[in-house]
Amino acid sequence: MKTVTLKINGTEHTAEVSPRTLLVHLIRENFSMTGTHIGCDTSSCGACTILIDGKSAKSCTILAVQADGTEIITVEGLATAEGLHPIQEGFHLNHALHCGFCTAGVMLRAVELLEKNPNPTEEEIRWGISGNLCRCTGYNNIVKAIQWASAKMQGKELPSTEPVFV
């Protein structure tokens, strides 16, 4: 067994884990933060995406021991005392989630995307989240949500969140 200490959403956590324990299981089972999900066994779906030292990563493909000493943000850490993170607001207002299973992973991936590229084009957003599978939404509204969050984070005029029909 190995001792790992990491900061999750600003709080330090320590656990004794076997060296083969996946980070996603450490977060979900040892620390009971179940907002991070598991959707596949080949690092393809991105449901387990979290931020490790600010970078998005698939926590199903990282050993808990590898994450020793890192700072992690999960979906539970997106909102602050002031309220929801703009990406959370964007997802809600633009109907960018249906079943909610992929949502945490896509949002965390989007947070990093917007950090690096505050004003992405639609194509950059689509490629940017191409490591996250969503089976419900058809992605249109996820793109819209990320565009909305981009505007909000830059203090720009907010796009309409009403659905557009032909």
């Binding site: 979900r28 933060m33 179940t34 907002g35 991070t36 999900h37 598991i38 999960t74 979906v75 539970e76 997106l78 909102a79 929801l84 959370q88 997802f91 809600h92 989630l97 079943c99 909610g100 299973f101 949502t103 945490a104 949002m107």
Partner: peptide, 10 residues
């Protein structure tokens, strides 16, 4: 769902 508080079987 946006706050990671859904309750799925796992």
């Amino acid at each position: 769902f946006i706050q990671g508080k859904g309750n799925y079987v796992d």
